[in-house]
Amino acid sequence: EDEVKKIVKRLIENGVDDEQIKEIVKRQGVDERIVDKVLKELK
């Protein structure tokens, strides 16, 4: 989960929008619920 957080944070800093972040992270095989949780925490 910490790995996911790092990735998502980097994507947000690069101006990637939420939908794209979800797609990218899902392609890495991460559960969507984890992605949603991380996005909420970082906003």
Results as ranks from 00 to 15, higher is better:
residue 1 E to I: 15
residue 1 E to M: 13
residue 1 E to K: 07
residue 1 E to Y: 15
residue 1 E to R: 07
residue 2 D to A: 12
residue 2 D to P: 07
residue 2 D to M: 10
residue 2 D to H: 08
residue 3 E to R: 09
residue 3 E to M: 12
residue 3 E to N: 08
residue 3 E to V: 11
residue 4 V to W: 07
residue 4 V to S: 01
residue 4 V to G: 01
residue 4 V to Q: 01
residue 4 V to F: 04
residue 4 V to C: 03
residue 4 V to I: 14
residue 5 K to S: 06
residue 5 K to D: 02
residue 5 K to Y: 13
residue 5 K to Q: 06
residue 5 K to R: 15
residue 5 K to G: 03
residue 6 K to P: 03
residue 6 K to T: 10
residue 6 K to A: 14
residue 6 K to L: 13
residue 6 K to W: 10
residue 6 K to E: 14
residue 7 I to G: 02
residue 7 I to S: 04
residue 7 I to W: 15
residue 7 I to K: 05
residue 8 V to F: 02
residue 8 V to G: 00
residue 8 V to C: 04
residue 8 V to H: 00
residue 9 K to C: 08
residue 9 K to R: 14
residue 9 K to Y: 09
residue 9 K to T: 07
residue 9 K to W: 11
residue 9 K to P: 00
residue 9 K to L: 14
residue 9 K to M: 14
residue 10 R to Y: 15
residue 10 R to A: 15
residue 10 R to P: 03
residue 10 R to L: 15
residue 10 R to C: 09
residue 11 L to Y: 04
residue 11 L to R: 00
residue 11 L to H: 03
residue 11 L to A: 02
residue 11 L to I: 01
residue 12 I to L: 15
residue 12 I to G: 02
residue 12 I to K: 12
residue 12 I to H: 08
residue 13 E to H: 08
residue 13 E to A: 14
residue 13 E to P: 01
residue 13 E to V: 07
residue 13 E to T: 07
residue 13 E to Q: 12
residue 13 E to S: 10
residue 13 E to L: 13
residue 14 N to S: 14
residue 14 N to H: 11
residue 14 N to F: 13
residue 14 N to G: 09
residue 14 N to C: 13
residue 14 N to Y: 12
residue 14 N to E: 15
residue 14 N to L: 15
residue 14 N to A: 15
residue 15 G to R: 04
residue 15 G to D: 04
residue 15 G to I: 02
residue 15 G to S: 04
residue 16 V to I: 14
residue 16 V to K: 09
residue 17 D to C: 11
residue 17 D to I: 07
residue 17 D to R: 10
residue 17 D to M: 10
residue 17 D to S: 15
residue 18 D to M: 14
residue 18 D to S: 10
residue 18 D to V: 15
residue 18 D to F: 14
residue 18 D to A: 12
residue 18 D to H: 11
residue 18 D to G: 07
residue 18 D to K: 09
residue 18 D to L: 14
residue 18 D to C: 06
residue 18 D to W: 15
residue 18 D to E: 14
residue 18 D to R: 09
residue 19 E to C: 04
residue 19 E to N: 10
residue 19 E to W: 12
residue 19 E to P: 05
residue 19 E to V: 10
residue 20 Q to F: 07
residue 20 Q to D: 10
residue 20 Q to A: 13
residue 20 Q to G: 10
residue 20 Q to E: 13
residue 20 Q to V: 11
residue 20 Q to I: 12
residue 20 Q to H: 11
residue 20 Q to R: 14
residue 21 I to G: 00
residue 21 I to T: 01
residue 21 I to M: 02
residue 21 I to S: 00
residue 21 I to R: 00
residue 21 I to Q: 00
residue 22 K to T: 04
residue 22 K to I: 13
residue 22 K to L: 11
residue 22 K to E: 02
residue 22 K to F: 10
residue 22 K to N: 02
residue 22 K to S: 03
residue 22 K to D: 01
residue 22 K to P: 02
residue 23 E to Q: 12
residue 23 E to D: 10
residue 23 E to S: 10
residue 23 E to F: 08
residue 23 E to R: 12
residue 23 E to K: 11
residue 23 E to N: 10
residue 24 I to F: 09
residue 24 I to Q: 05
residue 24 I to D: 02
residue 24 I to S: 03
residue 24 I to P: 00
residue 24 I to H: 05
residue 24 I to M: 10
residue 24 I to Y: 09
residue 24 I to R: 05
residue 24 I to E: 04
residue 24 I to G: 01
residue 25 V to C: 13
residue 25 V to K: 00
residue 25 V to A: 08
residue 25 V to F: 15
residue 25 V to S: 03
residue 26 K to M: 15
residue 26 K to A: 12
residue 26 K to I: 14
residue 26 K to N: 05
residue 26 K to E: 05
residue 26 K to R: 14
residue 26 K to H: 07
residue 26 K to F: 06
residue 27 R to I: 06
residue 27 R to Y: 06
residue 27 R to T: 07
residue 27 R to D: 06
residue 27 R to S: 13
residue 28 Q to D: 06
residue 28 Q to H: 13
residue 28 Q to S: 12
residue 28 Q to R: 12
residue 28 Q to Y: 15
residue 28 Q to M: 15
residue 28 Q to E: 07
residue 29 G to L: 03
residue 29 G to I: 02
residue 29 G to R: 03
residue 29 G to C: 03
residue 30 V to I: 15
residue 30 V to K: 04
residue 30 V to H: 13
residue 30 V to P: 01
residue 30 V to Y: 15
residue 30 V to D: 01
residue 31 D to Y: 04
residue 31 D to W: 05
residue 31 D to M: 06
residue 31 D to L: 08
residue 31 D to I: 05
residue 32 E to S: 12
residue 32 E to W: 11
residue 32 E to R: 06
residue 32 E to V: 12
residue 32 E to D: 08
residue 33 R to N: 11
residue 33 R to F: 12
residue 33 R to S: 14
residue 33 R to I: 10
residue 33 R to G: 10
residue 34 I to N: 02
residue 34 I to T: 10
residue 34 I to P: 00
residue 34 I to S: 03
residue 34 I to D: 03
residue 34 I to F: 06
residue 34 I to G: 01
residue 34 I to H: 04
residue 35 V to N: 00
residue 35 V to A: 06
residue 35 V to L: 13
residue 35 V to S: 02
residue 35 V to T: 05
residue 35 V to K: 00
residue 35 V to M: 04
residue 35 V to R: 01
residue 35 V to W: 03
residue 36 D to H: 06
residue 36 D to G: 04
residue 36 D to F: 06
residue 37 K to D: 04
residue 37 K to F: 06
residue 37 K to I: 07
residue 37 K to S: 06
residue 37 K to G: 04
residue 38 V to H: 02
residue 38 V to C: 04
residue 38 V to F: 07
residue 38 V to K: 01
residue 38 V to R: 01
residue 39 L to S: 01
residue 39 L to M: 08
residue 39 L to C: 02
residue 39 L to T: 02
residue 40 K to W: 14
residue 40 K to R: 14
residue 40 K to V: 07
residue 40 K to M: 13
residue 40 K to H: 12
residue 40 K to E: 11
residue 40 K to N: 12
residue 40 K to A: 14
residue 40 K to G: 09
residue 40 K to Y: 11
residue 41 E to T: 06
residue 41 E to W: 09
residue 41 E to I: 08
residue 41 E to Y: 07
residue 41 E to F: 07
residue 41 E to P: 00
residue 41 E to Q: 11
residue 41 E to C: 06
residue 41 E to L: 09
residue 41 E to H: 05
residue 42 L to H: 03
residue 42 L to S: 04
residue 42 L to W: 04
residue 42 L to M: 08
residue 42 L to K: 02
residue 42 L to G: 02
residue 42 L to E: 03
residue 43 K to R: 15
residue 43 K to T: 07
residue 43 K to L: 11
residue 43 K to I: 07
residue 43 K to N: 08
